[in-house]
Design a protein around this nucleic acid. Sequence first.
RNA 1: CGGGGUGUGGCGCAGUUGGUAGCGCGCCUGGUUUGGGACCAGGAGGCCGGGAGUUCAAGUCUCCCCUCCCCGACCA
Length: 588
Amino acid sequence: MLRLSQLFVRTLRDDPSDAEVPSHRLLVRAGYIRRAAPGGYTWLPLGWRVLRKVEDIVRQEMDAMGAQEVHFPALLPRDVYEATGRWTEYGDNLFRLKDRKGADFLLGPTHEEMFTLLVKDMYSSYKDLPVSLYQIQTKYRDEARPRAGLLRGREFLMKDSYSFDIDDDALAVSYAQHRDAYERIFARLQLPYVIVKAMSGAMGGSMSEEFLAPIEVGEDTFVRCSACDYSANTEAVTTSVPTADSNTYDASSTIATPNCPTIATLVDFLNENHPRTDRPWQASDTLKNVVLRLRQPDGSTETLVIGVPGDREVDMKRIEAQLSPAEVEPLDDAGFAQHRTLIRGYIGPQILGSTSDSGIRYLVDPSVVHGSAWVTGANTKDTHVIHLVHGRDFTADGTIEAVEVAAGDPCPNCAAPLEIARGIEIGHVFQLGRKYADKLGLTVLDHNGKQVVVTMGSYGIGVSRAVASIAEVFHDDIGLKWPRAIAPADVHVVVTGKNGDDITIAGEKIAAELEAQGLEVLIDDRNGVSPGVKFKDAELIGIPTILVVGKSLAEGNVELRDRHAGTNEAIPVADAVTRVVALARSGQ
RNA sequence: CGGGGUGUGGCGCAGUUGGUAGCGCGCCUGGUUUGGGACCAGGAGGCCGGGAGUUCAAGUCUCCCCUCCCCGACCA
């Protein structure tokens, strides 16, 4: 039995000043966690119980799908990460340290290499596959900006698992099993989620999905369709190809546009000096050409220009994801100096394209459809071109999804408007493919006795982040409201009497009976603490069922409070144990 | 890494023109209280983020560094 008179906890009356998001505020205030280091938290008894319950649910479902638990050290040698290039690739986010002999070590940010080598060490036949292994481990990442308490720390608890298969079909099966297990885990945690398509990006895999808890304070932006079930991470959105523009336009003409350095000033100038007959000019009539530099992993660079409608922002993440593994950056002054034909602010596609004199590759966003007419730069200072038609007056080398996805954009599935929402990434499933197995030499003999490279999947759940996410979903102004499955106890018995009086005796008796029934009981047996304080603390701590043994005992009643529903029901003392046990076992 | 804010007992905060630190909560002792964060009396607890400087004198002024929070960049 957890006795509040003994429990190592101190609830705070005021919000801690450094906590902004509700989960952080309430977990500290209710005595679940305490900040111990930048990006690091101490788990107090109540919090540790919740964390272990989340862990247990994850463990049960992973075991049920056939994965086997192992445990690696967090302290890892450099050479393993050197083999895959991640010692350098991971950059500043990696915690590095040296041992007394000066040898390099790191604190594991994720364990692909270790799992791959472990399987290589032990297995060598297709008969050993498939196999899925997992661990629940403390991970270390030297985040540039830890924030929001448990939501982004530098040390956090993660379940990571890895599947090993003989071929892509088998990988698809392992992937589906993990995905199903994740759905069961989040359902048991009562954590709402959407599964969004994610970019496989530099990891080189083929299929990747994120589980996002749709919560405003989340750091991930995703889109979802207002009509169908489509959802995707913003950088992974693919737009449907718009139909070509079949209108006929006037011949293009070059016009002087003094003092029009921005799109807004250009549009104003056009409306004043070259008004359209049908409607005013708009930013969406202009074609904005952004100059980028691509840097390939081998160090070579290329200048690239991307055309997007002038009313849209360029999304560098989306572009980078499609050009991976090349890195993308805006062209700097030195770069412009090398391309004298590119006049900043007046760049037009007339001189661009790999077959043009400049030889500069030119891509357009799909919204710049064939046959559409644009206002754009004339490649001379203070001069623009109007009625420049795609396909007639200029050509592109191809298309690239380049504009920042905005609310109201059409859904690629059904064309209904998309919504933009924020979420917390609580899980990620990923078909890694052969990247790690290749680099680390993980092969097995197939049934023909031939060496084949194993294909892998990697799957993660942020366990400590899940605790915070649940707190984000289940709280109100006065405290936490845990789902029953992970509450630190089944019932919180509030006893409002003084030591030795009838109320205290009755409360202790009920608590003991509840415990005898197998329930986890937290009893507020503090002497000399006023009922108001006990009620406030019970609401703050957030155990879903609160049983008050107090003044209504005189009428033979106790009070059964539901923290979620906010209800308070007087029930006969004799029924108390049965009722509470039934509630606890209902799972609701 | 850029921009903004911040740092004073465990928590929340005040501290004037520079003059040797205070309030509320919490904690301890005694007493009175006990259904919505009680009351009275008496206590304990502070390298004022760190360093350097100006000054007879620095929480307060100057410079450098650091922390935490927010926004951005970054984030398998």
